[in-house]
Amino acid sequence: MPAGPRAPASPAGVSLDRTKLLAARLKATGSHPYLASALYSLTVVPSFEVPTMGVDRHWRCYVSPAFVDATPVPALAAVWIHEVAHLLRDHHRRAELLPSAVRHDHHRVNVAQDCEINDDLSSLPAGAMKPAMFGLPDGRLFEEYLGGIPATPHPPQCGSGAHGVPMPWESSAAARVSPAEAGAIRRQTAQALRAHAKARGRVPAGWSRWADEILEPTIDWRQALTGAVREAAAWAAGAVDYTYRRPSRRGAAVRGVVLPSLRRPMPRVAVVVDTSGSMGDEQLRAVLAEVAGVLRAVGIGHNRVAVLSCDADVHAVRQVATVGEVTLEGGGGTDMRVGIERALQARQRPQIVIVLTDGLTPWPPTAPSAARVVAGLVGDEAPSPPPWIETIRIPSR
């Protein structure tokens, strides 16, 4: 529930005004019809311990009878939407992915989550957390808000369905929604939102963005790049060769003869960096740092990596140990063909060529032999390279 004045404690025996509470839910479905299925999936659990309203990760909604008595129906309707938003946006799972140093302060996490939800909600009770209260812009995810949220002496208590930490007032006796059912509810809600937007044309920006992510999930480009490089490395390592550095154990059966053993070579990598005028130096260094992490994760050491700075010509070729050693020279036109060709002409020919570019370049007409090319296209509008190039799209921010 959004932070605000708490209702007086309910004395034992005071019952929940379900008529008022359900009237508020009906009002919520009237203003946000695409949320109807999700709102009616919540199980209401009256509780004298919960300060206002809160949810657990099993779609149980805990409600204070005193809070319902003290809150007008329009505000209660907004709180219904607020609480179901925590579950639809999978806040508890996202909270578990935070670094432990941040995750343990679940009150601060809850405030940031409320800011993500409340920026496009009206009629909330007084004191509801909104980004403007902290000098932050609307329209961000809670992970982006966290850095600007200070500790608060009056934290919200939205329950484990928000920050992921079980609260004393949560019960295991009431009906629950399974993770598989929750996934189906999210998808159904996203489809209903799309249909509503198409028919009516008016949907809050935060909800529209959420539906896009549910129906067309964005693959993290770092994971995609790691997978592409790992697959290319496995392909290159498949080219087995013989070596006498480690003699074959079968040689023990033949006196006086040393037999070679088979080896799977660790691939060499060339990173061709587009330093033309259309590429930002700061952005390139950030992407290079990620690429260095990918190569380490795959097990390719820096002594097997060459970095080439290239615009319409190749300006620098270096074996580097850290990203800080990379010299980004250039700033003219763009032609990644010369960078790829130069990389493949090296005395120690790479088996993997990673090209970081905005895509505004000509490409080689055919795939090189005995090498795989992976293109990291920086920017949302980057044109696609030829189909034989493994393509990873890197957002501009």
Rank of each mutant, 00 (worst) to 15 (best):
A9R: 15
P11H: 06
G13L: 07
T19E: 15
T19W: 07
S31Y: 04
S37Y: 03
S37G: 12
V45N: 02
S47T: 04
F48K: 11
P51Q: 03
F67R: 05
P72W: 06
W80D: 09
E83N: 12
V84L: 06
A85G: 15
H91M: 10
R93T: 14
E96G: 15
D105N: 15
V111Q: 08
D119E: 07
S122G: 14
S123E: 15
G127E: 07
K130Q: 15
P131F: 06
P131N: 08
G147D: 12
I149T: 05
P155N: 11
Q157K: 06
G161F: 02
E170R: 04
R176E: 08
V177N: 00
P204Q: 06
T226H: 14
W235K: 11
G251T: 10
A253T: 10
R268L: 12
S278T: 01
L284V: 05
A286E: 14
R296P: 02
V298M: 12
S309R: 03
S309W: 07
H315Q: 12
E325K: 09
L328Y: 09
E329N: 10
G339M: 04
Q351P: 01
L356Q: 01
W363E: 00
S369Q: 13
A371M: 03
L377A: 00
V378Y: 00
A382Y: 00
I394V: 15
